[in-house]
Computed example of a mutant assay.
Amino acid sequence: MITCVDMKRLVLGLCGLLVLGALALGGAYIWAEQGIRRAVAPPGAPPVEFAVVKGTTGKALGPQLVLRGLISDARLWRWHLRRRGAFAPKAGRHLVSPSMTMSEISAALESPPLPDDVPFVVIEGWRLRDTDEALAAAKLIKPGAYLEAASHPERFTAPFPLPKGTLEGYLYPETYGVIPGEFDVEDLVQRQLNTFAERFYLPRKEALSRAGRSLHDVVVMASMLEREEPLPTQRAVVSGILWKRIDKGFPLGVDATSRYELEEWNDRKAFLKRLRDTSDPWNTRHRKGLPPGPIGSPTVASLEAALEPQANEFWYYLHDAQRRLHPSRNAEEHEALRRKYNVY
């Protein structure tokens, strides 16, 4: 039987819970309100270029803004948009600063975008030196400026560990809009790193953690696959062969690695000389294991193949004159294919 005293205690307990709930909601509201009014950087932080892809929703911009260091929390961005109401960001490039509040950022993204730019294409498999030469030929930089920037990973940010030495392999090959006369080489490098993160690293972060191989090793393998196999659909097969050779202690025999340090990639005389140099650390005919680093810029197709190789029975492969892949199970089959397709 419930007494009056018990009833009073029950009522007081319920009232206490209601008060605590109200305080928690009030605290969350205050936290959210303060968060959307607080910029992530003090006044005066330099603006960065932020691109809004056509058709991107306001909600979808939140994680991208967090990745670029422009806001602290995508949940706060959603709360801001809910309170703000209608939001219609304009596709294109916008200058946004981490010193801006969310209200200022959303207003900037609704403003007219930066003037039209011109395309600059970074070709799949290009080395840093190839991109540098193309930028110089387009009169966007002085020769060597891109190489110099990419040789200082500490100047840039990424959601993954940056390598030491150079950013070879991590600067994603894509068509980038640039404005002649306003070109910033470090901005291009940062955009390439951002694209690498958005296209490959972030969507496959969990798979990378389960792979049993470091991100850097995956990038090195992917850079070889980009050069070794012209058909993206065949790269997982080649990846399976090459990882097997790595794991079993066999030399890779990837001749593309011996071209990496050549001034001209297709300089055959210099290439054959490098193949004969058994002391060359890039000579994977004689040296076991992965080469010292990536040999160019891989695409998502190559990165995925390096991350998820196809298990198979093959140990060797070659390409015929039409660049068709012919794998083989042992040295005898491989030599027979060499003779058949006249590949030496």
Rank of each mutant, 00 (worst) to 15 (best):
residue 169 G to H: 00
residue 169 G to P: 05
residue 170 Y to V: 01
residue 172 Y to A: 07
residue 173 P to G: 06
residue 177 G to E: 01
residue 178 V to D: 04
residue 179 I to W: 01
residue 179 I to P: 06
residue 179 I to R: 14
residue 180 P to E: 02
residue 182 E to A: 15
residue 183 F to L: 12
residue 183 F to E: 13
residue 185 V to A: 13
residue 185 V to I: 05
residue 185 V to T: 14
residue 188 L to F: 06
residue 188 L to Q: 05
residue 188 L to M: 06
residue 188 L to E: 04
residue 188 L to P: 01
residue 188 L to W: 04
residue 190 Q to H: 04
residue 191 R to E: 08
residue 191 R to K: 14
residue 192 Q to W: 05
residue 192 Q to D: 02
residue 193 L to D: 00
residue 193 L to P: 01
residue 194 N to D: 13
residue 195 T to C: 04
residue 197 A to W: 02
residue 197 A to N: 03
residue 198 E to R: 15
residue 199 R to Y: 06
residue 199 R to F: 03
residue 200 F to E: 07
residue 200 F to V: 10
residue 201 Y to P: 10
residue 201 Y to T: 10
residue 201 Y to D: 05
residue 202 L to T: 08
residue 202 L to N: 00
residue 202 L to Y: 00
residue 202 L to F: 03
residue 203 P to M: 00
residue 206 E to G: 01
residue 206 E to T: 09
residue 208 L to C: 05
residue 209 S to D: 10
residue 210 R to V: 00
residue 210 R to T: 06
residue 210 R to Y: 01
residue 211 A to D: 08
residue 211 A to Q: 13
residue 213 R to P: 08
residue 215 L to Q: 00
residue 217 D to Q: 11
residue 218 V to C: 11
residue 218 V to I: 12
residue 218 V to K: 11
residue 218 V to G: 03
residue 219 V to N: 08
residue 220 V to H: 01
residue 220 V to I: 14
residue 221 M to F: 06
residue 223 S to K: 04
residue 223 S to P: 04
residue 225 L to N: 09
residue 225 L to D: 04
residue 226 E to W: 06
residue 230 P to C: 04
residue 230 P to Q: 01
residue 232 P to C: 05
residue 232 P to I: 11
residue 232 P to R: 07
residue 232 P to N: 11
residue 234 Q to E: 15
residue 234 Q to N: 14
residue 234 Q to A: 15
residue 236 A to V: 07
residue 236 A to L: 02
residue 237 V to Y: 11
residue 238 V to D: 08
residue 245 R to M: 07
residue 245 R to S: 11
residue 246 I to Q: 13
residue 246 I to P: 01
residue 246 I to S: 02
residue 247 D to I: 00
residue 248 K to M: 02
residue 249 G to H: 00
residue 249 G to R: 07
residue 250 F to G: 14
residue 250 F to A: 14
residue 250 F to H: 14
residue 251 P to S: 00
residue 252 L to Q: 02
residue 252 L to N: 07
residue 253 G to R: 02
residue 253 G to Y: 02
residue 254 V to P: 12
residue 255 D to T: 12
residue 255 D to H: 13
residue 256 A to W: 10
residue 257 T to L: 06
residue 258 S to P: 08
residue 258 S to H: 11
residue 260 Y to R: 15
residue 260 Y to H: 15
residue 260 Y to L: 13
residue 261 E to T: 14
residue 263 E to A: 11
residue 263 E to I: 10
residue 263 E to F: 09
residue 265 W to A: 11
residue 266 N to R: 13
residue 267 D to K: 09
residue 268 R to A: 13
residue 269 K to D: 08
residue 269 K to R: 00
residue 269 K to F: 03
residue 269 K to C: 01
residue 269 K to G: 00
